[in-house]
């Protein structure tokens, strides 16, 4: 199931993530392994947004630990507590730990069983968590008490996004072109946004945003070129998320060229009822969910209807009963849910 969601974004190579400025996170992993070998309790929680490179970091951990490590992954909601892995090796790399709970009475049993095994075992656990699920579990279940080392993947800056794209796609990048058809490139960027007049009526307006790097530049040669403007825009719209930046990049390239105007975000004003908002939250915090499993686990919520509603608005994608949040809809959805206090 997780493969379906991750197909939405190409695999991010470890080298590309290091080039993008995430070297400190890899070093923290190595340091934790060193601590474990010296007898310290160094269980690791790798916490990141969807598409932010968590899989790459865990793959590196498995490689770094070598033959001492076994790999386990959860690809969907776990309802049987016995599915929690009992370690046979000195180290265990586990991804998808956010699938170990369901938001229902009795839904924490698999997670509790897993945490018990982590704390009772002498093995080192390197675990991967969806950041939104981690924040919820930390507040309700104190899950961070079992993991003394927490490695969070930070947002990339424009330079990091540029390095990531260069490292991912190599030297054959598309041509960067400016365009006058949609506003000037240098001083101002123009974005089209939908302004809601009422709940159902909106009007498209053009909103200018300043290109600060151009305004503060002193010499002609300091002025941001089109390439810098593209990466700046990519960074802003992806909020520094590597996978979202790559997804936006791939969507923006047309006929071997890319322009600032072609780098667009999801522009949609969200107004969801309680069930739709909750279902969107569950998809966001799990990464990908099976519609039927979720509907069975939460009979009091209109899961099927809500997922169809969300899919019609391009907030989630549905394929063979699996629902996941589109990379380009990740941050608009998170922002909306944060405003509704569904994300804390």
């Amino acid at each position: 199931m997780r493969e379906v969601a991750e197909d939405a974004v190409p695999d991010l190579p470890v080298a590309a993530l290091r080039e993008a400025g995430l070297g400190a996170q890899f070093d923290a992993l190595e340091e934790a392994v060193g601590g474990h070998l010296e007898g310290e309790r160094s269980n690791v929680a790798v916490v990141a947004e969807p598409f932010a490179g968590r899989a790459g970091l865990l793959a590196y951990a498995e490689e770094y630990l070598g033959a001492a490590a076994e790999r386990r992954s959860f690809d969907g909601l776990v309802v049987d507590p016995d599915e929690a892995p009992a370690p046979d090796s000195e180290a265990v790399v586990v991804d998808g730990c956010h699938y170990l709970y369901t938001r229902r009475v009795g839904g924490f049993d698999p997670l509790e069983r897993f945490i018990d095994r982590v704390t009772d075992s002498d093995a080192m656990f390197v675990t991967g968590w969806n950041r939104y699920a981690w924040d919820y579990l930390r507040a309700t279940r104190d899950v961070d008490a079992a993991f003394p080392v927490v490695v969070r993947l930070p947002a990339l800056d424009a330079g990091g996004v540029r390095d990531l794209i260069h490292a991912t796609y190599g030297p054959d990048l598309p041509a960067f072109e400016s365009t006058e058809a949609f506003g000037r490139v240098k001083t101002l960027d123009f974005e089209r946004r939908t302004l809601s007049l009422t709940r159902s009526v909106g009007v498209e307006v053009t909103v200018p945003t300043l290109n600060l790097s151009y305004l503060t530049a002193r010499a002609e040669e300091d002025v941001g070129e089109v390439e810098a403007v593209v990466f700046e825009r990519l960074t802003r719209l992806s909020e520094g998320n590597p996978g979202v930046a790559v997804a936006l990049w791939e969507r923006s390239v047309e006929d071997g060229t890319i322009t600032p105007a072609s780098v667009e975000a999801l522009d949609r004003s969200l107004d969801l009822d309680d069930d739709a908002g909750f279902v969107l939250l569950l998809v966001l915090t799990n990464g990908a969910v099976d519609r039927e499993v979720l509907a069975a686990a939460l009979p009091e919520v209109q899961v099927r209807r809500s997922l169809t509603f969300l899919a019609d608005r391009d907030l989630v994608s549905l394929s063979d009963d699996i629902a996941w949040v589109e990379p380009t809809a990740l941050h608009p959805a998170a922002e909306y849910l944060r405003g509704r206090r569904l994300l804390w």
């Binding site: 938001r103 229902r104 009795g106 839904g107 309700t140 309680d274 908002g277 909750f278 569904l342 804390w344």
Partner: peptide
Amino acid sequence: RIVREAMETSQYVYVTDDHPV
């Protein structure tokens, strides 16, 4: 345990260090 989990898993709950269940 049931009452705690019913509250923690509600779609309307708000939990932080300053707002515990």
